[in-house]
Design a protein around this nucleic acid. Structure first.
Length: 215
DNA sequence: CGCGAGATTGACT
DNA sequence: GTCAATCTCGCGC
């Protein structure tokens, strides 16, 4: 049964196997629960981005499978974690049919459980709303790193899980716009967020100059 | 408060 | 060698 924008759907592998833009939107309001490191931290997703496979120049899977991105080519509902900028981890939920390599980047959320632990992991955060506001911050708050790569988020026995329903945020409350931080492919409105939610990361127009280029 | 640049490692060309 | 789905700090207004 296809996901519909105005219908709440049970979280299932087949539902997550739909196109990443559909899944991304539907994931808003769902929870990511982590017991990594023994402590329990939960985040309610408030901002996500969809990434396609071979047809999306902004996707890690654009140039085909590599050791780094092979998880994206697997079944939906699996965690794809990658390391970037020499210091940050970012977390994605693999979506789409197996072999298509689409995924949903978890950009921001509200910490609903384990705030104390999240504060320890994100000591630089001044306010609680900043604990998981931004993809690397969200991963840090949940304690996610390379060790979480490949975890099946639908397996109750795993230390990281997806819970809640798909499509739980009403369409009226969902905003959309261009993706963030990309040099290419930033034109597609594949970023989705919960309107008026304080934990949504601040939008910065793409194409920031990178330092070092002489005038 | 807003903008600009550095940090720091690994993956890919 | 270059660039990366980012974050934070510091400076200038």
């Amino acid at each position: 049964m296809p996901l519909q924008a105005d219908l709440v759907v049970r979280l299932s592998r087949s539902a997550l196997a739909e196109p990443s833009a559909v899944v991304a939107r539907a994931l808003l309001g769902a929870h990511v629960l982590s017991t990594v490191g023994g402590a329990q931290v939960a985040v309610r997703l408030t901002e996500v981005e969809a990434y396609g496979g071979a047809a999306d120049p902004a996707s890690h899977a654009y140039r085909g499978p590599t050791p780094r991105n092979e998880t994206m080519f697997g079944p939906a509902g699996v965690l794809y974690v990658y390391f970037t900028y020499g210091m940050h981890w970012c977390a994605n939920v693999v979506s789409g049919p197996e072999g298509e390599a689409s995924a949903v980047l978890l950009r921001a959320g509200e910490v609903t459980h384990g705030v104390e632990v999240a504060r320890l992991r994100r000591a630089s955060a001044k306010a609680d709303r900043d604990l998981a506001r931004g993809p690397a911050r969200l991963a840090a708050a949940l304690g996610l790193d390379g060790g979480a790569l490949g975890i099946d988020l639908l397996d109750e026995r795993q230390p990281v899980r997806l819970e809640g329903a798909l499509g739980s945020v009403a369409p009226v409350d969902v905003g959309s716009g261009p993706r963030v931080g990309l040099s290419r492919g930033g034109d597609t409105p594949w970023r989705f967020w919960v309107r008026d939610d304080p934990t949504v990361s601040q939008y910065r127009p793409g194409g920031r100059n990178r330092g070092g280029s002489p005038a």
